[in-house]
Computed example of a mutant assay.
Amino acid sequence: MRIGIDLGGTKTEGVVLGAGSRVLARRRVPTPPDDYDAALRIIVELVAQLEADVGRRGLPVGAGTPGARSKRSGRMKNCNSTCLNGRPLLEDLEARLGARVRIANDADCLTLSEAHDGAAAGARCVFGAILGTGVGGGIAVDGTLLSGPNAIAGEWGHNPLPWPRPEWDEVPGPLGWDGRYGSIEVWCCGPGLALDHERVNGVYLRGEEIVAAAAAGDAAAEATLQRWEDRLARAFASIINVLDPDVIVVGGGLSKIERLYRNVPQRWGSWVFSDSVDTRLVPALHGDASGVRGAAWLWPDPDA
């Protein structure tokens, strides 16, 4: 048995994963906003509750985080939950839990989960993409995460949107929280989809409202989704051109938009440097649970 923790911006979830990837216990609590010490406390409490649920103590813990641990300083970086940045999260968790702890980016955890026993099971090279409040990515090869010397493997969201279309005013593009204009994240995340619709039409709709309006025949909403799908196709094509993955698996709130799995592959062939594209685009099999399951999979062998 091992514990997985998914430290999100609004909720923190924990599971105990047993043999055969079976979930033996699950709990979810709200994440304290912008409070590092409070976040540590709820993780410690969650681990204690989960261990009590299964009657075991000292289980190894994997934690998915909205950022990465710097290999230079050992402190957190690139977290959109900014209270984590510059903090020694791994060491603090180890000290408070008295347990073996591993941490990884939340997109890495999704990728690991889906590569082991999800929508990309059996695939040699997997790119995992989170499309939600932000845009994240992770890479797994033969079921093993790639981290890289800078601990940023897969972070496609902070690259500029490729092959920008001047007719859609994509240059320089919106300003993101990272201080960059026109990144894949600011165009393709959930808020980016909503703001693009507002920018063009003067009406603010949430992503799910845009999808519903397009399905009901609203031409403006349909045009917004087509722009978003075209941007995703270009963004994924840039990944295929570099990594050539067998599978791209998508999680996050926008992964529920079913039409993207049909429409994006129809578009990305114009940008992929090949006469055919056999990469599969699929939704995460475990949905919202992929992140927390992948955190537990940071311990593929709990006895190691």
Rank of each mutant, 00 (worst) to 15 (best):
P160F: 15
G118C: 14
D230P: 02
L254A: 08
V29S: 04
A95L: 09
R57E: 15
P160G: 15
G251Q: 07
R267H: 13
R180Q: 10
T133F: 04
G154W: 06
D301K: 09
P245G: 07
L50F: 10
G134P: 10
N78V: 07
L193S: 09
D35G: 01
A39L: 12
L17N: 09
L232R: 09
N159I: 01
T224K: 06
V171S: 11
I43W: 07
T10G: 08
R124W: 10
L146R: 05
D35V: 08
L97E: 10
S270A: 15
L110M: 00
N159K: 15
L112Y: 02
R56M: 15
G207S: 14
L145Y: 08
R2K: 09
E155T: 09
V15W: 03
E222W: 08
W187M: 06
L161C: 05
R267S: 04
L59V: 01
G137D: 11
G251F: 03
L97V: 14
E208I: 04
V242N: 05
V54D: 01
A295Q: 04
E209S: 04
G62L: 14
I210E: 08
R293P: 13
A215W: 03
Y204K: 01
A95S: 03
L112E: 11
S270P: 03
L7P: 12
L84D: 10
G98Q: 06
V135E: 13
D178K: 08
N105D: 07
V272A: 09
R96W: 04
S290M: 07
L254V: 05
I257V: 13
P265A: 12
P88I: 14
R234P: 00
F273C: 14
A129P: 00
D244E: 14
A129L: 15
L7C: 05
T82L: 11
D106C: 11
P300D: 07
E208W: 06
A48L: 11
V250I: 13
D218W: 13
R206W: 06
G136R: 06
P33H: 03
P172V: 02
N85G: 07
P149N: 07
G202D: 15
M76Q: 12
G98D: 04
E258K: 00
L232E: 12
A212T: 09
P172Y: 10
R227I: 09
S81K: 10
K256G: 05
G253C: 15
S21C: 14
W299Q: 11
V135N: 01
G190C: 15
L232H: 13
R267G: 08
V101F: 04
A38C: 00
R96E: 00
E45K: 08
L131K: 00
R180G: 00
W271P: 10
P164E: 08
V292T: 02
L59Q: 10
I3S: 07
G14Y: 00
L89F: 02
N241H: 05
T31E: 12
L97I: 05
G143I: 00
F236A: 05
L84Q: 12
L90W: 00
E185G: 02
I239M: 06
L131G: 05
G179W: 07
W156A: 11
G74N: 12
V141A: 09
